[in-house]
Nucleic acid binder design. Structure first.
Lengths: 147, 147
DNA sequence: TATGTACAATTCATGCATGAACGATATTGA
DNA sequence: TCAATATCGTTCATGCATGAATTGTACATA
């Protein structure tokens, strides 16, 4: 006796506003993440770039970075501008393709990424442990589903 | 035998990147929503304001709108600027408090909100029906949890 | 009543995201 | 070889979000 309004699809305790609820919940999570990273003086986009550079283990072109972080190139241009101003990254010319510019992480960048990572891990643990054990498998499944 | 890395909290198939997965999934959902609303020539923030005004059934002060949509006032100032430029809303002076400005929806605004609502409902149904029946209760529970 | 405090909206600076237009360089194919 | 085409990064215009500073108004109380 759910599906009160009789619309097909809106059944079984899935409210009319589920989409907004999910988005809202994610935003709340995002805010927590931003808050945690702030302790390391980093924003999420900046942290993502540093993390990518560290895990790649080498300098990456701006286009490659944009592609890996799923954003447009012009965004990466600005982001790297800011990271460069912070001294966390530096632009280096690509020797094999003169159109391309690579972003190389600096020592300061490495340090900041490590600090950020600590904070992220802390939050990660807190959030993970707040998810009821019996719901974890479902969460993972839902996530895979909504890809 | 989960919890491979042995960190407390990071257990039972909850990967190290769960936070990012959730945020990423929500962003994907958000993109779909933006895409749907685009058919009604609306952005999510604009739609939210119109929806709030319709459901309130009366003009609301910018501060009230900001508070209901959980954003800062300066943001609402700009948003209403754009909505006003679109002819979907109009500013009216508050008779009882000369500091306050109310946003009143126009006829065009009402129409657009209705169009947007149709698109949102369509997407809502599609998403809802893509969530496995046996996972729905859990989803609702998780959402309530992450409030 | 005058004054200090609280509150409303705005403006400004900044960050982050997009897409269009552009110049420089690579690559392809006639 | 050289003209068309594709790709790379940048710039610019725009939207949306924040917080700080400002202006105008309301209100409490000394």
């Amino acid at each position: 006796m759910n599906d009160i309004d009789g619309r097909p699809g809106a059944s079984s305790a899935l409210a009319d506003e589920t989409i907004f609820s999910v988005i809202h919940a994610a935003h709340a999570l995002e805010d927590k993440l931003e808050e945690a990273l702030e302790k390391a003086h980093l924003s999420m986009p900046k942290y993502s770039v540093l993390k990518e550079l560290v895990s790649a283990g080498e300098a990456l072109s701006l286009g490659e970075l944009a592609s890996r972080l799923s954003c447009v190139r012009s965004n990466m241009t600005q982001l790297v501008d800011r990271l460069e101003a912070d001294g966390l990254v530096r632009r280096v010319a690509c020797p094999t393709d003169r159109r391309s510019v690579k972003a190389e992480i600096t020592e300061a960048g490495r340090d900041r990424q490590a600090e950020g990572s600590k904070e992220v891990t802390r939050l990660q643990d807190a959030v993970a442990s707040s998810v009821p054990v019996e719901d974890r498998a479902t969460l993972v499944r839902l996530l895979a589903h909504l890809k």
